[in-house]
Design a protein around this nucleic acid. Structure first.
Lengths: 214, 214
DNA sequence: TAGATTGTTAATCGATTAACAATC
DNA sequence: TAGATTGTTAATCGATTAACAATC
């Protein structure tokens, strides 16, 4: 991933900027500055200006950024003004939660197919969607022209599932399984794992207690 | 966060190492090398050795690392051999999914209290737990000696909830609300937001299509 | 005009990697 | 002994920040 000239780490901050701008807009705010945005996100104003400068000049000296305009630019850059179709693999508890999660729809992401390998789940309905047999992932994903896969299946099958998604033409995978996937380098992957987050925080809790004890 | 001398980014890789080692151990493997581990995680072997060297010498020249020994060391460093108690705020769909998630328990993390501000939810049961009124977070968290808070409440109340958790003595917060929290700097925070992950991946999908089109 | 804030350059800071002596 | 792999140093690479001319 990342053949281009904009660093990954910059790309990963853009959605953060967009989110803050969305919230400002909701509050009726019209204009902001790199300083205000930075304060809100705990990021330096210089970094925000630098990040944005990779894509163009969106501000005005002396006044800052027009919020509506910058939002539109960021949505265009991230391509989140279009609607995106997603294929979900895994019809368990997590899968259900994801299908029912309104936040995706609200931001133009839609789950349009659900797969599982459990015979007792295949054929059942999840919201409007019939759970399909996992083995048909490649052909169905291609048929539906889906470019984003979401893996909510156990780690043991995650790699196989990922391979099938890629076979179907998926370009990006959001993986909830606790495993590092091995994929062609032109496929984008992101991982969601609350346990990793918890396990790094406990390191810091421990450290603070040590300091107190001394 | 991070008064110590080990960089944050190193701490965040340790749980990844531990996870891979756990999986190797499950498969009956006894020994590994920085090279094998790196290949599996898409991290350079030099980086793994460097990261570990912040904490001690855990390997043997010529043979590599004893998996059981290294796991024990990492669990000790991260303090994940102890059991951790957590307070969950938000008894909605996400809150239910989190309470029912077996992965936490399996790794020594337990949800021991649930709070909400919705009168129709307060008093109802979630698994073994009675949903309590959000306003009692500070006193109850202190009473139960809970050091980790999990926010599964809407963004609109997330900051207020975080403040109450900190008042109760929480040292770390796992935040599912789409907002950057403003907290004392000795409080560890991690965010889980699948939308941010999706919105950065769509940038890359777009880029690849451009390349193909040319 | 005076004040504010941008976009950008150069300097600083920090993280990653290559290489290798040590040694199992 | 020969082969493998560690822990560590120094070099490289990349990201962040400070500073400021440009200009609204």
């Amino acid at each position: 991933m990342n053949n281009g000239d904009v660093p990954d780490i910059v790309i990963h901050r853009l959605p953060l900027y967009l989110r803050a701008l969305d919230q400002m807009a909701e509050n009726g705010q019209l204009v902001t500055s790199s300083q205000e945005l930075g304060q809100r996100l705990a990021i330096s104003s210089a970094q925000i200006r630098k990040d944005l400068s990779h894509f163009g000049e969106f501000g005005k000296q002396g006044t800052g950024y027009d919020i509506e305009f910058l939002r539109a630019q960021l949505r265009r850059i991230l391509q989140v003004d279009e609607s995106w179709s997603m294929a979900l693999v895994g019809a368990g508890a997590l899968g259900h939660a994801l299908v029912n999660y309104g936040g995706f729809r609200q931001r133009n992401f839609h789950i349009d197919a659900v797969f599982d390998n459990d015979a007792t789940k295949i054929g059942t309905m999840m919201e409007q969607l019939r759970v399909e047999d996992q083995r048909y992932i490649p052909e169905r994903v291609r048929e539906l022209e889906i470019y984003i896969g979401v893996i909510a299946a156990p780690a043991s099958v995650a790699q196989a599932v990922a391979d099938m998604l890629v076979q179907g033409g998926v370009r990006a995978i959001l993986c909830y399984a606790p495993i590092t996937l091995s994929l062609p380098e032109d496929i984008a992957v992101e991982y969601i794992d609350p346990l990793l987050a918890l396990q790094s925080m406990t390191y810091y809790i421990h450290k603070r207690q040590l300091i107190i004890d001394n």
